[in-house]
Nucleic acid binder design. Structure first.
Length: 506
RNA sequence: GCCUCAUUAGCUCAGUCGGUUAGAGCGACGGACUGUUAAUCCGCAGGUCCCUGGUUCGAGUCCAGGAUGGGGCGCCA
């Protein structure tokens, strides 16, 4: 009977047939252990010389990693195994025995792995990440659907740079210049006026030459837009939404998060209320004028820097002692390998820590010198979120630094009702949104101020001419959300084939 | 666009003050051993030291320029 690995628990004691690839293999004289992966899971299959006979046994022993095959055998429960089951093979069919597989069972560099992304996706960590991504997408749809939102799609080709700020990819649309969308936001507003509550879910393109762990040139964004919502309704929804998605994904991806060695106690903090700060309060905290739990940002950062320096020293001492032990001789080869591996790992960690060591002083300077009125930089976000265990929402921004379509605070027209949700653990801005300007005249002023072509916004202004209502929305960066949930060092691992500055293949 | 770090075997990395024939581990391959989970043992193969130019009796090593990549800033989700 043909079954998938994920369903083995319902077939204990039965003869089944699995189809998959050799994820790993260990051989001995009479037994060969193959970790088979079929996309749904991993399962050890045991091939016994005495069961299969010499010819068949030699064939399976000779299989290279990622060879494809089907295996017939009996399902046996075994607690020691990943997934809890193993197969005692009675027969098999090889689809292809492949040669040396490029991705070895050891640490690889980023560039090598990115060049082999089409194969890297098969590895266990990537498998886990892609399943979390899938779960996040599923949860997002679940949340909005149960809340009565209608999913609608914004166009990907646009005729103009709609927000006028970022650089866009230009393309040819039947002889006219066109751009790949940087946001579905404006179209979302039009759709919300038709349906009440909508959300878009699609790819977004930014032509910025960003080289950071948070940026992609092509990424997926979820943009809900709600009629009759103000900034506070918006923040309530953001909080509810983010909490729902994370809680749901944690419960459905236990195995995946375990593979990723994600410390979920940090994620569980999501059940506590999120921090809400006005821009003014956030600036005071960043600059160290206001304490959080009796501590100032600069002190915390300086302590982080000292810890980093200490960690580097500790790791170097560890490397040195291992090297001394190896050079002293008398060590078994296996032990030597183990120590060499540990040294390699430590050296990699040191490289990362040394980058922190170079960056943290810059962040401290940037925090000290932050001038009121400016937008937050990546480092300011890191500094601010470093002070809290839960996501932080910052709202009421100086209107100059935010998009033209944001509504002004009626009590203080210098402030725009935008809100950013900053994730903990250095993941930065995961959500950006706010209440939209409803006043036609204010919008016209802003469009002129930004030097945008008025004729391209006539349709948008119509939304304020015909039944204008308070409304709000936000945009969630899918990849940043996945990176945060999985605790990944870079968003490039959260999308099957990342498109970023300097990377268009594979 | 700016700052910073890097580039040596298929992969991960050593390579001292500029010195003679460039090393290790992993992987691969051949063999021994083993209910194994990246920690057994022996053997074997494997190099355009990123590119160009310069300094020098001599450059993987020093200098200049370039390419590619990592990270940070700006920009943003």
């Amino acid at each position: 009977m043909k079954v998938e690995i994920k369903d083995l628990s319902t077939h204990v004691g039965q003869e089944v047939e699995l189809h998959g690839w050799v994820q790993n293999k260990r051989e001995s004289k009479t037994l060969t252990f193959v970790i088979l992966r079929d996309g749904s899971g991993f399962c050890q299959c045991i091939f016994d010389l005495n069961v299969l006979g010499e010819e068949a046994f030699n064939e399976v022993s000779a299989l290279g990693l990622e060879s494809s095959l089907s295996v017939k055998g009996k399902v046996v429960a075994d607690e020691r195994q990943v997934g809890g089951f193993e197969i005692h093979a009675t027969g098999f069919h090889v689809y292809q025995n492949c040669g040396e597989y490029p991705i070895a069972k050891k640490e690889h560099g980023v560039e090598f792995l990115m060049d082999h992304r089409h194969l890297w996706l098969r590895s266990k960590r990537q498998w886990a990440i892609m399943r979390v991504r899938n779960a996040v997408i599923f949860s997002i749809h679940n949340f909005f659907q149960k809340e009565g939102f209608v999913q609608m799609d914004a166009p990907i080709f646009t005729g103009n740079a709609c927000e006028g700020t970022t650089e866009l990819f230009e393309t040819d649309f039947f002889g006219q210049p066109a751009y790949l969308t940087q946001s579905g936001q404006l179209y979302g507003e039009a759709m919300a006026m038709a349906m009440g509550k909508i959300y878009t879910f699609g790819p977004t393109f930014r032509a910025e030459k960003s080289k950071t762990r948070r940026h992609l040139a092509e990424f997926w964004m979820i943009e809900p837009e709600m009629a009759f919502f103000d900034i506070f309704d918006d923040m309530d929804l953001i909080e509810q939404f983010v909490r729902y998605v994370i809680t749901d994904v944690m419960s459905r991806c236990k195995e995946e998060l375990e593979i990723l060695e994600r410390d979920t106690t940090v994620l569980e903090k999501i059940s506590n209320p999120f921090i809400r700060l006005t821009y003014d309060d956030a600036v005071a905290i960043i600059k160290g004028e206001k304490e959080v739990n009796g501590r100032k940002t600069i002190e915390v950062l300086e302590e982080d820097l000292r810890n980093t320096v200490q960690q580097i020293a500790d790791l170097k001492a560890d490397i040195e002692s291992r090297e001394t032990a190896i050079n002293a001789g008398g060590m078994k080869k296996g032990q030597v390998n183990f120590n060499l591996n540990a040294i390699d790992k430590n050296k990699n960690t040191i490289k990362q820590l040394e980058e922190d060591e170079r960056n943290i002083p810059q962040w401290i300077e940037s925090a000290k010198n932050f001038t009121y009125g400016g937008d937050f930089g990546g480092s300011d976000e890191t500094v601010l979120t470093r002070m809290f265990e839960v996501p932080v929402m910052v709202y009421d921004w100086p209107h100059e630094v935010k998009a033209f379509y944001l509504k002004r605070n009626p009590d203080n027209p210098k402030l725009a009702r935008g809100v950013d949700l900053l994730a903990p653990e250095g993941y930065g801005e995961v959500v950006g949104g706010g209440e939209r300007e409803t006043n036609e005249q204010m919008l016209i002023e802003k469009i002129n101020e930004h030097g945008l072509p008025m004729e391209a916004f006539e349709w948008y202004l119509d939304l304020r001419r015909f039944g204008s209502v308070p409304h709000a929305g936000f945009g969630l960066g899918l990849e940043r959300m996945v990176a945060w949930i999985c605790h990944l060092p870079h968003v490039r691992e959260t999308i099957p084939f990342p498109r970023m500055y300097g990377r268009i293949e594979p």
